[in-house]
Computed example of a mutant assay.
Amino acid sequence: MLESSALVNLLDAENSSLALHDGLVRLSGERQCEGELEVFLHQVWRRVLLDSWSLTESSVVCRQLGCGSVLNFYGSSSSSPEHSHECVTGFQCSGSEAHLGNCSSPQTLNCSSTQQLYITCLGRGSIRLVGSGGDCAGRLEVFHSGSWGTVCDDSWDIKDAHVVCRQLQCGVALSNQQVPAWFGPGSGHIWLDEVECEGNETSLWSCSSSGWGKHDCNHKEDVGVVCSEFKEVRLSEGCEGNVEVFYNGSWGNVCWNQMDRDTVSLICQELNCGRSGLLSASTPRLKSAPNWLDKVTCRPHDSSLWHCPSLAWGQNDCKGDEVATITCSEQKSHVSPQSYLTWSTFPHQRQSSVLLLF
């Protein structure tokens, strides 16, 4: 069961028969971020009815609970004797509210008069990977009781990391033998410890743990994960050299076919190496590495190399001396915020196993 610690604070409205004070919102289901929606009114948890409810109100609830965006909602006529016979309806939100209490005041109805409301949130927003400059690698943090906290490495293994990557839609996890990265200790709460997954779960909330806030850890034991969909770009000599990208657990080359001024400019800007550069072709520094990208043609409105059209990953028409080499117009003034996975010791063969970082 997931409930929000945010106060809902609905005041009496002129045309409303109910005021909501010191209210919590929760989803009562088997998994976190889904279930029957209830609000706490007058010291009693009360169901929210389907009448007049929409995706807009659902999105506010998912945001309030730290569960990302809404997947769907539906009604059910089931009832439970331990709940009050009073239910709630009439919430109207614009969609930008931080919590349901910022929406219009509700009305009460008898629970038997209509269907109760069930919501499923995507849940992506309830876990995150931070510290890498991307969404698919970093220190694992989970959202609980209104704040983000870390996960301890006790009992953590490859199967747990796979579930995290699956939940974040970031592919599979990569083994720590492949990617020697450290995202640093977190701060605040350590929310989970002794997490144990079978490996086939779609969400971390389906895995067992010692319970919220129960641990014997400190932050130097915070878990980090790198998923196969994490991508990085670098030039082999800082602000000049072969263009190399990290994908699916290994560094590879980028071919120069169809690369133009806009593409060169975007790469230099992403690496904090100026706004322009010179392009040439050369032999690869990474001799046995895959040619990950070819025919990359960035457009003026693209904000990242990963938004630019290209052939699919690993598909190329690249000869041995056609690896892109760029010399950017300026040297770095400070370390690029994305330069986290730039060790030359990575294996160059393509892999798709698992990663856990402690």
Rank of each mutant, 00 (worst) to 15 (best):
C170G: 09
E330S: 15
G90S: 06
D193L: 07
M1P: 06
H99E: 09
L168V: 09
A19T: 13
C308R: 04
Q338L: 14
S339H: 12
G171S: 08
E82M: 11
P81T: 12
Q107D: 15
Q338M: 12
S105K: 05
G274H: 04
G101D: 03
L2H: 04
L2R: 07
E57Y: 03
P347G: 04
P284G: 14
E330N: 13
V163P: 03
V151T: 08
W251H: 04
E232D: 12
L122D: 15
R31T: 06
L49G: 09
C328Y: 06
V226H: 01
G146H: 05
C33H: 00
D317Y: 10
L168P: 06
E3Q: 11
R261K: 13
K214P: 01
G133I: 04
C170L: 09
T283Q: 13
E232H: 14
T327N: 11
Q169V: 10
G75D: 10
F230W: 05
S276T: 14
S236T: 15
H83L: 15
L41W: 02
Q177P: 02
R46V: 00
Q351H: 11
S77T: 13
D317L: 11
L10S: 03
E330P: 05
V60L: 07
R46N: 00
S282W: 00
E141T: 06
S112G: 12
D260P: 04
C318M: 06
T297D: 09
C227Q: 04
C255W: 09
V296F: 10
F346G: 09
L37T: 01
W212H: 11
T56I: 15
T325V: 14
S344C: 06
S236K: 06
G146K: 08
H83W: 14
L71A: 14
Q116F: 04
N218F: 13
G125R: 01
V195N: 02
G238W: 01
G134D: 06
H83C: 01
N316I: 01
E36M: 08
H162I: 07
N176T: 10
D157N: 15
N257I: 02
L204T: 04
H162M: 13
Q331T: 11
E97T: 06
W313C: 01
W292F: 10
A289K: 02
G171F: 03
L235H: 06
R350D: 08
L18Y: 00
V233G: 03
R47T: 09
K332T: 08
G274F: 04
H301M: 12
E244C: 09
L357M: 12
L55N: 15
Q107S: 15
D260M: 10
R63V: 02
W212R: 13
S303E: 11
S208L: 14
N200T: 12
